[in-house]
């Protein structure tokens, strides 16, 4: 099938799932059910799109299909921020209850962290893997502190922390959602300035420079875009570490092309399908006995192991 056909099929499938999600067993109480489901579906689509876009770009910059941007420590930082706030101010603090305040604090701190990390490391040199490894070490560092705080926290408050450990689409605030939409749209729009370079960047640094890509600047800008998108989606719903890995690889397998116009659109659609479909199954089949992000991470992780062991394309 031509890539355009595949995109159309994916889009149709995504729309079908969304329709099913919104209208399935909606009962007669439309005024109540419909707006809530629409908000949820919007949050899901936004998160899915942001993560898929960020991961695809990230994998192209790093020339690697086995990395995901969450590993540069943003997930762990998110957990640390949440744990720290609950530990110091208690679970009744406005910083925990008021989602907007929490969203701003989290996104702000994550951006500061990413900016500092990039700033220090770009001065140092330009080995991308070095940057990632340093990010991971910071992740372990944040993780150590969070775990320590979690042990000290009162068991009741721990439940609230545990709640934050897993992404959830169930109580997304409409105000933040609109804001997150605007921020994501602006970021993606900005990234589009560099989109034409993505195909060439997948040839690797040397070829990209040789073919006239302003490499250092492009990679920096795109890494910032990636950090912003991941920060927004994580602050909005919580960490889903392996979603990006899953959908980016499925997109590569499905499209088998180097053209990012198809890859990006495709991975965004696959991501929406995975999340909406997954949420549908979780709500209607498992009836909330587990959370979507745990399942996605599980499936993503297993699929990824399979890819690694089958044939290394790294």
């Amino acid at each position: 099938m031509h890539p355009k056909g595949k995109i159309a099929a994916l889009a149709a499938f995504a729309l079908l799932l969304i329709a099913a999600f919104v209208f399935y067993k909606s009962g007669t109480n439309w005024d109540y059910v419909l707006p809530r489901r629409l908000v949820k579906i919007a949050a899901i689509a936004l998160t899915g799109a942001a993560i898929a876009f960020a991961t695809m770009v990230f994998q192209t910059i790093t020339n690697n299909r086995i990395l995901t941007p969450s590993i540069i420590g943003l997930d762990s930082l998110y957990m640390l921020i949440q744990t720290f706030i609950i530990f110091v101010f208690g679970s009744m603090s406005p910083m925990v209850i008021n989602k907007s305040v929490n969203f701003f604090i989290t996104v702000g701190l994550m951006m500061i962290f990413a900016a500092l990390l990039y700033k220090v490391l770009f001065k140092e040199g330009r080995n991308l893997f070095f940057l990632l490894l340093v990010g991971i070490i910071f992740g372990t560092f944040f993780g150590s502190i969070s775990t320590f705080l979690q042990v000290l926290i009162d068991p009741n408050e721990f439940l609230i922390v545990q709640d934050r450990m897993f992404a959830s689409f169930n109580n997304v605030n409409t105000d933040i959602l609109a804001l997150a939409f605007a921020l994501t749209a602006l970021t993606v729009l900005y990234a589009m300035r560099y989109a034409k370079y993505l195909d060439v960047l997948s040839l690797g640094r040397d070829h990209a420079i040789g073919l006239g890509v302003p490499y250092d600047r492009t990679v920096r800008q795109l890494l910032i875009v990636v950090a912003v998108l991941i920060a927004i989606s994580t602050a909005l719903v919580g960490p889903i570490t392996f979603l990006g890995l899953l959908v980016a690889n499925v997109a590569h397998e499905l499209f088998r092309t180097y053209r990012h116009s198809y890859l990006l659109t495709g991975s965004v659609l696959i991501s929406v399908i995975a999340l909406v479909g997954g949420q549908f199954v979780v709500e209607r089949v498992f009836t909330f006995s587990t959370t979507l992000s745990v399942i996605i991470n599980f499936i993503g992780g297993v699929y990824f192991l399979y890819l690694l062991l089958r044939e290394s394309k790294a």
């Binding site: 086995i66 990395l67 590993i71 991971i136 570490t241 392996f242 399942i295 599980f298 992780g301």
Partner: peptide, 19 residues
Amino acid sequence: LVGLMFGNIISSITTFFAY
């Protein structure tokens, strides 16, 4: 980097069952 990713994946499986 690969090793740490691999560790994260195993952890996600652990989390799944633990949860």
